[in-house]
Amino acid sequence: MSSLVAHTTIDAHDAYALSEFWKRVLGYVDLDGDPNLPGHEECMIRDPETGHRLLFIEVPDDKVVKNRLHLDLRPRDVGREAEVERLLALGAMVVADRRVDGGAGWFTLADPEGNEFCVLRSQDELDAAGVAQP
């Protein structure tokens, strides 16, 4: 027996604003027939290709420590540095630069509410470096 991940939930102070940020980051969309609107306490978005869903739900608690679970993003159409610049323009903040000599490593960023996520090298960058990734 096993379970299926129905969606990934992210706590937020403003579910709508955070869902809008992540829609731009990931290219996700609102659910058909269930658009997210300002003031909604729960906002779900989905990947139009895979169907993966993220649910943003309003909670009164402040984020106070490092996330125990986070997303690792691999840019689709640009390199890691260009994607980091795009995300910063959308409102992300740099938490740490974990790049190392030779191009390996990642950037740790935070969304507008402080939730950390990482930006890895693109598949094209990995291929050019001869690095196999699962």
Rank of each mutant, 00 (worst) to 15 (best):
D34E: 14
D34L: 11
D34T: 12
D34C: 04
P35S: 07
P35F: 09
N36G: 15
L37E: 11
P38A: 03
G39H: 08
E41A: 13
E41V: 07
E42I: 15
E42L: 11
E42Y: 05
C43D: 03
C43F: 07
M44C: 09
M44D: 08
M44V: 14
M44E: 13
I45V: 15
D47N: 15
D47W: 01
D47Q: 07
P48F: 04
P48I: 08
E49C: 05
T50D: 01
T50V: 11
G51F: 11
G51R: 08
H52N: 11
H52K: 05
H52R: 07
H52F: 13
R53Q: 15
L54Y: 04
L54R: 06
L55D: 09
L55T: 13
I57S: 09
I57W: 13
I57E: 10
E58N: 11
E58K: 14
E58G: 03
E58A: 14
P60C: 06
P60N: 10
D61C: 00
D61Q: 15
D62H: 14
K63M: 12
V64D: 10
V65L: 13
K66D: 13
N67D: 15
N67R: 11
R68G: 15
L69R: 02
L69I: 14
H70W: 06
L71S: 09
L71P: 02
D72Y: 12
D72V: 01
D72R: 03
D72W: 09
R74A: 07
R74K: 15
P75Y: 13
R76K: 14
D77R: 15
V78F: 06
V78R: 13
R80D: 04
R80H: 01
R80F: 06
E81G: 02
E81M: 10
A82K: 14
A82V: 11
A82L: 08
E83R: 11
E83H: 12
V84Y: 02
V84W: 05
E85Q: 15
R86T: 03
R86D: 05
L87Y: 09
L87E: 10
L87K: 05
L87P: 10
L88S: 05
L88R: 12
A89P: 02
A89F: 00
A89T: 03
A89R: 13
A89V: 00
L90F: 07
G91Y: 06
G91F: 02
G91V: 03
G91K: 01
A92I: 12
M93P: 00
M93A: 14
V95M: 01
V95S: 05
A96R: 14
D97C: 02
D97H: 05
R98A: 13
R98W: 08
R98Q: 12
R99M: 06
V100Y: 08
V100H: 09
D101V: 10
G103F: 09
G103A: 05
A104M: 10
A104H: 05
G105Y: 01
G105D: 06
G105K: 05
F107M: 03
F107C: 00
T108Q: 10
L109Q: 03
L109P: 04
L109I: 04
A110Y: 04
A110N: 01
A110P: 00
A110Q: 07
